[in-house]
C-alpha cells in the first residue's frame, strides 16, 4: 500500500464534494476510479497531491503517502512524489526538448549531456522518441493530441515521481492513441503506481488491477478489477456497469 485515505472530505466553499472517503492504493498497480460525471472522481484525484488547493478546495481527514501524512510533507516535495496528468494535454508553449528539461533544470541539473539523456530516456519510455527524434526543437503545441499527452506523461516522469495521477488522459484521443497510452501505462506500472480516472469502463477493465466505483462523492465499492466488473457487491455498482455496458 502506498497511499491511504482516512475519512477524506473535500469542500468547495460550503459545498461538500467528497464525503468520508476511505481507500487504499497498492504500490506498482494501476487503480482506476470510475463513476458517473460529477461524482467527485477528479476532485478526489486532485486532493491526493493537494492540487485541489489551487482550485480553492479544502480537505478534511487524512491522506497518507507511505504512512506519512501528506500535510506533513512540503507541498512541492509532495507534488514531486505524486505527479499529475490532466484530461486535456497541457504542453508548455516551448519546444519538445524544453518541455522535457523544464523540471530537471529547476531541480538543479545543468549538465547539458545529462539533460539530454533524461529527455531522451523518458521520451523513449513514453513511446514518443521514434516519432519526434528529429524534431526535438519543434514547438510542442504542433504535436498531435495523442503525442502531446504522451509528452506530458514523459515530462511528468522527468521528476521521477512515485505515483502518477491521470485524469481521463485518453478522453480526447482516438483508438490508436488510446492504445498507445494504455500500453505505456502497463509498462510504467512496473516502476510507478498509477491512479487513473476514466469514464471508459473497457479501458479500466483492460489496464486496471483495482477499480474504485464512486457515486455522489462517496466510494461505493472498491476491489480487484475482475471482482468489480464480474460480481460487484453493491447494487449501485452493478447498475452503473450494466448501464454503461449497454
Amino acid at each position: 500500500m502506498i497511499i491511504r485515505t482516512e475519512d477524506l472530505s473535500v469542500y468547495y466553499g460550503y459545498k461538500n464534494i467528497l464525503k468520508d472517503v476511505n481507500v487504499t492504493f497498492e504500490k506498482n498497480k494501476i487503480t482506476a476510479i470510475i463513476g458517473p460525471s460529477g461524482c467527485g472522481k477528479t476532485t478526489f484525484l486532485k486532493s491526493l497531491n493537494r492540487t485541489i488547493e489551487e482550485y480553492g478546495g479544502k480537505t478534511e481527514g487524512n491522506i497518507y503517502l507511505n504512512n506519512e501524512d501528506i500535510m506533513n510533507i512540503p507541498v512541492q516535495k509532495l507534488r514531486n512524489r505524486i505527479g499529475m496528468v490532466f484530461q486535456t494535454p497541457v504542453v508548455f508553449p516551448f519546444s519538445i526538448y524544453k518541455n522535457m528539461t523544464y523540471a530537471p533544470i529547476y531541480y538543479g541539473e545543468r549538465n547539458s549531456q545529462k539533460l539530454k539523456e533524461t529527455a531522451l530516456k523518458y521520451l523513449k519510455i513514453a513511446g514518443l522518441y521514434e516519432e519526434v527524434k528529429g524534431d526535438l526543437d519543434m514547438q510542442a503545441t504542433k504535436l498531435s493530441g495523442g503525442q502531446q499527452q504522451r509528452l506530458v506523461i514523459a515530462r511528468c516522469l522527468t521528476v521521477n515521481p512515485e505515483v502518477i495521477l491521470l485524469d481521463e488522459p485518453c478522453s480526447a484521443l482516438d483508438i490508436k492513441n488510446t492504445a498507445n497510452i494504455e500500453s505505456m501505462l502497463l509498462e510504467l506500472k512496473k516502476d510507478y503506481t498509477i491512479i487513473i480516472v476514466t469514464h471508459n469502463l473497457a479501458q479500466a477493465k483492460r489496464i486496471a488491477d483495482y477499480v474504485i466505483y464512486m457515486e455522489d462523492g462517496t466510494v461505493v465499492e472498491m476491489g480487484k478489477t475482475d471482482d468489480i466488473f464480474d460480481c460487484p457487491l453493491d447494487s449501485r455498482t452493478k447498475e452503473y456497469i450494466t448501464y454503461m455496458k449497454n
Binding site: L78, G83, Y102, V152, C156, V159
Partner: peptide, 14 residues
C-alpha cells in the same frame, strides 16, 4: 491557461 500553471506546480515546481 490555468492548466499550464497548475501543470507546472504538479511537477513540484514552486
Amino acid at each position: 491557461s490555468k492548466e499550464q500553471y497548475i501543470s507546472s506546480l504538479s511537477l513540484g515546481i514552486p
